[in-house]
Simulated scan of single mutants.
Amino acid sequence: MNEKDYYEILGVSKDATSRDIQKAFQQKARKLHPDVNKEPDAEEKFKEVSEAYAVLSDEQKRARYDAMRSGNPFAGAPTASPYGGGYAGSAGYGNPFDGGFPFGGAWGQPRRGQAAYNPESGANVVVDIKLDAKEAKSGAHKTVRYTRFDTCGHCGGSGSVSSEHAHTCPSCGGRGHIDVDLSFLFGAGTFQTVCPECGGSGKVVADPCPDCGGSGRIRVTSEQTIEFPAGTHDGDEVRIPNMGHAGTNGASGGDLVGRAHVEAERLEGKARTGFYLMGIIAPFLVLSAISGVFSAFAMMCFIPFAMGLFMVLSDGVLHRSLLWWKRGAMQFANGFANGFMFALVSVWFASCSQQAMLSPYGMQ
């Protein structure tokens, strides 16, 4: 869980006064400002302390921040929601698939707070499934167990228990960003950042669901049977709609994607490298044989070519399918294309050198 502690970031206690917070921010900001500090992570740290100051320097934002912190799984009993509802428990909080702690978003990138209303489509879940050659040829049914986000049954996916409509974010007033007054530090102007409470959407869930924390989805373990048709090849995919991750706040869900992993057709590891290595060396051998020059170097080229051949043969070629050999040929062709120009230039230079040595001007 991304649980940023703004008090720790500024180096102040939980009961620090507004003056203590401002003084701590002044000291850190002056050291970390990009115009002064040229360290690679200085700008990121400056933005982090500015975000912390933007929340703790405002009494209302600080009160909501403290209330939400006391409602997370690591801080004891939950408190009343700042939006009128109640956090009835900690289930669903701290979920690794959600945006993290309410005020824990990365700088400049919207992240969900526990009560942020930000409908986003669910991602697909991709599962690699091994099939042997017989199963790939005749078809197979494979049952898989996987972890995903499902629609919350308590709130129906909306994220709110008692209200169907989202409320305007009280921290940013619906703008999706908050301003940090830096006039006392740098003379004039304000610094703008994405609102950490709504993640930039400008809206929050009116009455966050205690089961899903306002996201509208919960983590579950699902079981699904995937049917691969006859004639399936390595890398083929079977898609089952709406069995991936559910979307947040009622948005559409993703799909479950079963990807066939057929060992007999899969070109990888040593064999893949071996085909490519032979492809790179082959042009040197061919052009040397055609031109009749560079014979010494051509003999040296047999060594890496033989190494590539050994890598291919050691990968169980007798149990490989026709598709495996086709993929190997493509890899060989890629290597040949990359090595051909170098071989052409090398043989041309060798031929010119031999002619120069045989010319009258090249003889002693």
Rank of each mutant, 00 (worst) to 15 (best):
residue 70 S to Y: 02
residue 67 A to S: 11
residue 224 Q to F: 06
residue 306 A to Q: 05
residue 96 P to F: 07
residue 2 N to G: 12
residue 14 K to V: 09
residue 166 A to C: 06
residue 216 G to T: 06
residue 45 K to G: 00
residue 198 C to T: 09
residue 160 S to W: 02
residue 235 G to Q: 07
residue 206 A to P: 03
residue 209 C to H: 01
residue 20 D to S: 06
residue 103 F to P: 00
residue 283 P to I: 05
residue 92 G to E: 01
residue 228 F to Y: 11
residue 209 C to Q: 05
residue 321 S to M: 09
residue 318 L to T: 14
residue 124 N to P: 12
residue 112 R to P: 02
residue 207 D to Y: 05
residue 350 A to W: 04
residue 195 C to V: 10
residue 255 D to H: 11
residue 290 I to G: 12
residue 231 G to E: 13
residue 272 R to T: 03
residue 288 S to N: 14
residue 289 A to G: 14
residue 91 A to L: 11
residue 20 D to G: 02
residue 43 E to V: 04
residue 282 A to R: 03
residue 290 I to Q: 14
residue 364 Q to K: 13
residue 221 T to Q: 14
residue 349 F to K: 14
residue 312 V to N: 00
residue 43 E to A: 11
residue 244 G to M: 02
residue 194 V to K: 05
residue 277 L to S: 04
residue 187 G to Y: 10
residue 57 S to E: 05
residue 185 L to D: 05
residue 38 K to P: 01
residue 60 Q to G: 03
residue 39 E to W: 06
residue 23 K to S: 09
residue 44 E to R: 12
residue 123 A to R: 11
residue 324 W to K: 05
residue 215 S to Y: 07
residue 179 D to M: 11
residue 334 N to A: 13
residue 205 V to A: 10
residue 141 H to W: 13
residue 305 F to G: 01
residue 141 H to E: 15
residue 356 A to V: 12
residue 318 L to N: 15
residue 127 V to A: 12
residue 58 D to Q: 11
residue 102 P to Q: 08
residue 224 Q to S: 10
residue 329 A to Q: 08
residue 323 L to E: 13
residue 271 A to Y: 02
residue 95 N to K: 06
residue 154 H to L: 13
residue 67 A to W: 02
residue 184 F to K: 12
residue 147 T to Q: 13
residue 11 G to M: 05
residue 228 F to N: 01
residue 136 A to I: 08
residue 263 E to D: 14
residue 131 L to E: 06
residue 243 M to W: 00
residue 146 Y to D: 08
residue 149 F to E: 08
residue 210 P to F: 09
residue 243 M to K: 10
residue 350 A to K: 11
residue 269 G to S: 15
residue 135 E to N: 13
residue 124 N to T: 12
residue 333 A to P: 03
residue 118 N to Y: 06
residue 5 D to M: 14
residue 281 I to R: 02
residue 34 P to Q: 07
residue 283 P to W: 06
residue 287 L to G: 02
residue 98 D to V: 01
residue 305 F to W: 11
residue 172 C to Y: 01
residue 130 K to R: 14
residue 82 P to D: 05
residue 196 P to Y: 02
residue 310 F to Q: 10
residue 216 G to I: 03
residue 356 A to H: 12
residue 81 S to N: 09
residue 10 L to N: 02
residue 340 F to G: 07
residue 315 D to G: 07
residue 115 A to F: 02
residue 75 A to M: 15
residue 77 A to Q: 15
residue 194 V to P: 01
residue 50 S to K: 00
residue 335 G to K: 02
residue 100 G to K: 00
residue 24 A to N: 03
residue 1 M to T: 15
residue 325 W to V: 10
residue 350 A to R: 13
residue 263 E to R: 10
residue 178 I to R: 00
residue 22 Q to I: 04
residue 170 P to Q: 09
residue 102 P to K: 01
residue 142 K to A: 11
residue 151 T to E: 13
residue 278 M to K: 08
residue 270 K to R: 15
residue 65 Y to G: 04
residue 187 G to E: 10
residue 174 G to M: 03
residue 256 L to W: 03
residue 308 G to Q: 03
residue 62 R to Q: 13
residue 117 Y to K: 10
residue 7 Y to W: 14
residue 200 G to F: 00
residue 332 F to D: 02
residue 16 A to I: 05
residue 299 M to C: 07
residue 187 G to K: 06
residue 58 D to E: 11
residue 36 V to G: 01
residue 92 G to P: 01
residue 343 A to Q: 04
residue 249 N to V: 03
residue 363 M to C: 09
residue 347 V to W: 00
residue 40 P to W: 08
